[in-house]
Structure formats: structure tokens, C-alpha cells
Nucleic acid binder design. Structure first.
Lengths: 153, 153
DNA sequence: ACCTTACTCTTGACGCTTCAAGAAAGTCGA
DNA sequence: TCGACTTTCTTGAAGCGTCAAGAGTAAGGT
């Protein structure tokens, strides 16, 4: 057992603010989407990801990666979206294991309805508070944090 | 109904990465604490917040603010921590409405046990990936995002 | 052909968070 | 002192996410 890698004061300060962001920003987002559209953020992410594809369809596993969700989580989310009639599942004829999530017309309409409110809430939460150079900094910082973010063990 | 405030391409790019951070960093943190200490991040936050007080006690409402939690959420969290024997609740003699959360000896031991692993995981997830100037940028950015983060309506 | 292994996805149980409701104590004015 | 109102906190139900297990399909080796 090695020496613990304690945080310096400067790191402490940064970490505390980051934690606050990590808690509050998702909560605010979730709240807006829930109130105004009856959607989870993950639900919205799935619908909007599908809506960006020309054919409005994606295999579950690819969708999971795009939405940063576990397969299990995605499966539950899509099951709920399917129950609402916003998504339908089809089996891939090429590979009987893969299920393809397909955005329905109602689902597309739902994204179109929810998108302006969501965009506005993102503006309020993030971009109204940052200068353009800060937006670039933010992008760089996030890229750094995501560099190889797995196996935290 | 006004014109929707759509995101520019640069904002889109920043937002997508930020969302990824917002999903993955908490998940990694939660995972490490759950595996290594059997604690929620919020549970750890509550214990460590209490441990920083000289008398190891704080009223629920102040604790909720420090941990960025709703009172309801805190109440559930503290109930679980209390069931584990890590926290105890006392009624404030000055004001019968307020409950004071008190860190027990076992609770203090629990923080001491969990802290090194947590610190290490924060280092891996964040500070190993950033230069010192970037840490300062991160602090500034978070402050901007938290400036008046409420009433997102 | 068969068996093993790997891959994709689903399921159910359990735990945590949210939300709406409400209990209990304090405060203030009439 | 009474009542209305506010503040602080708790509760229970419902929804969402995680985890472990497993079903179904494909691929590779013998």
C-alpha cells in the first residue's frame, strides 16, 4: 500500500467546483426536459441521436456508445421509449443478434417538439455564462478528461 | 413563441463533449466508491463534509447546501448512513425543527478508510489529465457555470 | 457435425433519487 | 392567545440505473 495521492489545495478547490457542476448541471437539464417534455436526458439523447441519422435507425450497441450508456441501461430506456411509441425495434437480417432501434414518426415529432426548449436550457446553463474563448477552453478540457477515461479501477 | 436559440457548430461540439464528461466522470467515481468502499458518492460527500467540521456535526439544511443535495435526498441518504451506524441524528435544542447530523466514530473511521482510494480516483480521472494552467482554467469555468445556476425554468 | 467461446441484447431484482404530500416546530400579527 | 404562515425535515410511492444472470445467435476449432 503506497502513499495516498492527496489533492493539493488548488486541486481541492477545482475538484469541489467540478463536483458541484457535475451534480447541478445534469439536475437542471433533467428537470427542464422532464417538466417540458416528459423525457429523461438519456431518453432525449437516444431520440435525438436517432433523428440525426438519415435513416433514423441504429443498432443498440452503436447507439449505446453514442449516448455513453451501458447496453443494459439503453435496453431499459429504449423499452420505455418503445412503450410510448417513439421507437421501434427490428432484428438485423444480417446478424440475428443485433437489434436495430428505429425512430418512429411520433418519435421524430417528439424530438422536434422538445428540441427548442432543450437548446434554450443548454444556452442558459452553459453558453450564456461563457465567452467564446472559454467555450474553446471547455472543449479542450473535456477532451483531456475523456482521453482514455476508462479502467479507473 | 420566440425563435429557438439553436447551438452553433462550435457550441454543439463543446456541448457533446461536456455531456460525455457529465455522464462518464460521475459514473466512474460512483463505481470506484461503490466497489472499494460500498458508498454512494453522495454518501461519501456527506461523511467527508461532516468530517471536516471540528465538532463533526451540521444541521441537515446546511449539510444539504454543502453537498448540493435536496433536503429530501439528504434525508434518505442520512437515513441509510444512520442505519450503517456512521451518522446519528440529534434534535437542535435551540430550534426544535432542525435536526443535526453527527458523524460517529465508526463514520469517521469509514471516511479515513475510503479517502485514499477516492483521492486516487480523482487524481486518475481529473488531475492526471490536466496541466496546472488547465486546472486553473477548470476552476474558472466551473465558477462561471455555477454563477447563478438556479431557476433554469 | 459438434463443442466451445464470444458477442449482442434482455431481464428482474435491488438501490437510489425525485416528487408530492405532510408532520412538527417556530414566527408573526391581530 | 389564537390563527395563519413559514421553515425544517420526513415519508412513501413511482421511476430510473446498476448489477448479475441468462437467452439467443454467430464464429472458430477439431
Amino acid at each position: 500500500m503506497d502513499e495516498p495521492r492527496w489533492l493539493t489545495d488548488e486541486q481541492q478547490q477545482a475538484w469541489r467546483k467540478l463536483v458541484e457542476v457535475l451534480v447541478k448541471v445534469p439536475a437542471a437539464l433533467e428537470g427542464q426536459l422532464q417538466r417540458d417534455a416528459g423525457l429523461t436526458h438519456m431518453g432525449y439523447l437516444v431520440l435525438s441521436t436517432l433523428s440525426e441519422r438519415d435513416d433514423r435507425r441504429l443498432p443498440m450497441s452503436r447507439l449505446a456508445k453514442k449516448a455513453s450508456a451501458s447496453l443494459s441501461r439503453l435496453s431499459h430506456v429504449v423499452a420505455r421509449l418503445e412503450a410510448q411509441g417513439w421507437v421501434r425495434r427490428e432484428r438485423d437480417p444480417e446478424d440475428g443478434r443485433v437489434q436495430i432501434a428505429v425512430l418512429t414518426e411520433d418519435g421524430y415529432a417528439k424530438v422536434v417538439e422538445a428540441a427548442p426548449g432543450h437548446a434554450d436550457s443548454v444556452q442558459q446553463l452553459v453558453f450564456d455564462r461563457l465567452t467564446t474563448p472559454q467555450v474553446r477552453q471547455l472543449t479542450k478540457l473535456c477532451e483531456a478528461l475523456l482521453d482514455a477515461p476508462d479502467e479507473p479501477r
